[in-house]
Simulated scan of single mutants.
Amino acid sequence: MAPRYKRILLKLSGEVLAGGASFGIDAERVRALAAEVAEVAHTGVQLGIVLGGGNFFRGVAAAARQMDRVTADSMGMLATVINCLALQDALEKQGMPTRVMTAIQMPQVAEPYIRRRAIRHMEKGRIVVFGGGTSNPFFSTDSAGSLRALEIGAEILAKATGVDGVYDKDPRKHPDAVRYDRVTYSEMLAKNLAVMDASAVAMCRDNNMPIVVFNLTTHGNIMRMSMGEPVGTIIGNAL
């Protein structure tokens, strides 16, 4: 069976790399994630990945503790680069050539983000991991994911979370929460379904970039998603 998508932007939270811990990087969790991602890449899917940094630093939470928001967000962006390097190492141990590209220039550590170079890497079968967010404060890595998906011409933005889709309320707190199979961008924004930042959803809406929200903790879901199987909630225009 051939993959449904040729090019995917995969958005992962930093917490994914922490595994069962609340902080840092769980080497076994990163290895398992890299194995799943490599399996998809071996089918010929071109993959870009945007990683958050929440396992090291939460910018908004730090700002609430009286730290300057711009400084806090800058620290959060640097945290994403740590995660990108950890994932790159794990992917290359799976035999997948991988490039880390950062929006914040640090040439001794990673390549600077250049759109055409990133696309060329993917065309050559390399996985590209994008770090540093957008390089601007006040923008989340959700917004970075939407931006990179549009820039590289991805066919879908895949947001991997700890729940199996978009619900009308938090299913971890409300047992009667109802899951959507499909939801429009406008419904997401009007109902404040907070699985993604509003600015990221609006960017996708304005440029007709479909989003799928799915559960990363179920083994094999990245492959199922790439094959077009119904593994979560599709966010897009009305049918």
Rank of each mutant, 00 (worst) to 15 (best):
A103W: 10
A103D: 00
I104R: 04
I104H: 06
Q105Y: 12
Q105K: 10
P107D: 10
Q108I: 05
V109R: 09
A110I: 05
E111M: 07
P112F: 06
P112D: 13
Y113T: 05
I114G: 04
R115Y: 08
R115I: 09
R115T: 14
R116F: 06
R116I: 03
R117E: 11
R117Y: 02
A118R: 03
R120C: 06
H121Q: 12
H121R: 09
H121T: 00
M122W: 11
E123R: 11
E123D: 15
E123Y: 04
E123W: 01
K124G: 12
K124Q: 15
R126P: 00
R126C: 12
I127V: 15
I127N: 07
V128Q: 03
F130I: 04
G131L: 02
G132V: 04
G133S: 04
T134C: 01
S135K: 02
S135F: 01
N136R: 12
N136P: 00
P137S: 06
F139M: 10
F139C: 02
S140N: 02
T141V: 07
T141A: 04
T141S: 06
D142H: 08
A144T: 14
G145D: 05
S146M: 09
L147Y: 07
A149P: 01
L150E: 06
L150F: 11
L150H: 07
I152Y: 09
I152H: 04
I152C: 12
A154I: 07
A154G: 13
A154N: 11
E155H: 14
E155K: 14
I156P: 00
L157M: 14
A158S: 14
A160M: 11
A160R: 13
A160E: 14
T161G: 12
T161K: 13
T161E: 10
G162P: 00
G162Y: 07
V163S: 07
V163A: 03
V163E: 01
D164I: 08
V166G: 01
Y167I: 05
K169T: 14
D170S: 08
D170A: 10
P171E: 05
P171W: 01
